[in-house]
Computed example of a mutant assay.
Amino acid sequence: MEVFELDKNRWKDFKLHFKWSSDRYYKVDIRRTQTGWMIELKLQTTDKPIVKDYEEPLWQKWMDEESGDGARIFGVKIDGEIVGWMTVGIESWNNRLRVYELLVLEQYRKRGIGKILLDKAKQIAKQKHCRAIVLETQTNNANAIEFYRKQGFEFDGLDITAYHNDDVERNEVRIEMVFKNF
């Protein structure tokens, strides 16, 4: 397996099919205190698995607009078939590499493909002298959070209204994760 760059023009209309399920999520609890706020993310289990099945473009024009050098797309092939994709770009205003999209086909997960893609992101960030790598996931995708933590990413923050105004109640809060161990 090796990572190779994909031509954006050829892949600009490609849609990634994200499909995952989890029996765990991080419950977000935000409490106001006398001196500020207390924020807690506590791992919970659910009786009914959380199932997500949706599509998103591999690349979108705004990714180039947000990236100083323009977004880049990478893939991993096994037996001639692309089984993993990653789109990255450098946020020039704060010198971070952002992973916009990362997907490994469901039947190829837990084989090191995601690690290979993130290693490529780390290599690019180091070559471009970025201070950090950031990415987004959701509190209800406990498997993704666990994977990113194993790759050296840490919790960086959350956005409690990224998707809907009731993200906290729906247990689907956007979290940012960061890698800064260069």
Rank of each mutant, 00 (worst) to 15 (best):
V51S: 01
M38Q: 15
D166C: 02
V99F: 06
I30F: 03
I39R: 08
D64T: 01
Y54F: 15
R10H: 14
L58V: 08
N181Q: 14
F182V: 12
E55H: 05
G114K: 07
I116S: 15
V173I: 02
Y108C: 04
D79R: 10
G152Q: 11
R24V: 03
K48G: 00
G36S: 06
D69F: 11
V99P: 10
L103F: 04
T137V: 10
V51Q: 02
N181H: 13
R32P: 09
A71D: 10
E56K: 15
R170L: 11
F74S: 04
A125L: 04
F74Q: 08
W59D: 10
K77H: 07
I160R: 13
N165C: 09
E2P: 01
N171S: 04
Y26K: 08
R174H: 03
G70T: 02
I133Y: 05
Y26N: 07
K180S: 12
F179G: 04
E66W: 14
G89K: 10
L41A: 02
E136P: 02
S92L: 05
N171F: 01
E40P: 01
T139N: 00
A132M: 06
R131P: 10
E56F: 05
D29L: 11
A162D: 01
I124N: 00
K42Y: 03
W37H: 13
R98G: 03
A132N: 10
A121N: 03
D53W: 03
V178E: 04
E136K: 04
I145M: 05
R170F: 05
R31Q: 14
L158C: 06
L102R: 01
I73K: 00
L103T: 00
E91W: 09
T33V: 13
Y100S: 02
V88L: 14
N140F: 00
A125W: 03
D159P: 06
N94A: 07
F14V: 15
D53M: 06
D166P: 05
M86K: 09
Y108H: 15
E5K: 15
D13R: 13
F179D: 07
L43R: 09
I82C: 15
Q138Y: 06
G114W: 06
F155S: 07
L118S: 02
I50R: 06
I113S: 05
E5F: 13
Q34G: 14
E146Y: 12
